[in-house]
Amino acid sequence: MKLIRIQQEDFDASTLLTELRSDRSDIGASVTFIGYVRDLNLDDDVKAMRLEHYPGMTEKALEEIIDEAGSRWKLSGTAVIHRVGELQPADQIVLVAVTSAHRGDAFAACEFIMDFLKTRAPFWKKELLQDGSSRWVEARASDDEAAGRWKE
């Protein structure tokens, strides 16, 4: 099963996992990653984040990443939910869930999908500042390096 959702609304990981497992008894493990909007390394004057994406390509890019993960590991189901629009610090922003017969495949695939989502899925974050201005978040070299280590 493949679930790909781009939405403004919040999501519930446990509901999603129930949907992804859909009463199958051959699933031995699920690994879920959730990313949150953090204010840890944001300046104090950031009050919110706005996410833009490329409708159409986003879904295709995520499906390609999921399919690539499916060709590398034995997976039962995969879900990616990514929120767009305006988000507040501490909000959930992204979920990647992978189910498999064995935990090793689920752990690896979940990390792989997240690393490629960060470098290949067309989303852009903009920080909205207290004074009404805004600035785009810059891409980080460390994200390219994280995706690069899966090449071999």
């Binding site: 996410l51 960060k118 899925a121 067309p122 852009w124 891409a139």
Partner: peptide
Amino acid sequence: FFPPVTGG
């Protein structure tokens, strides 16, 4: 055309 992506 777009800047390097920053999702996740």
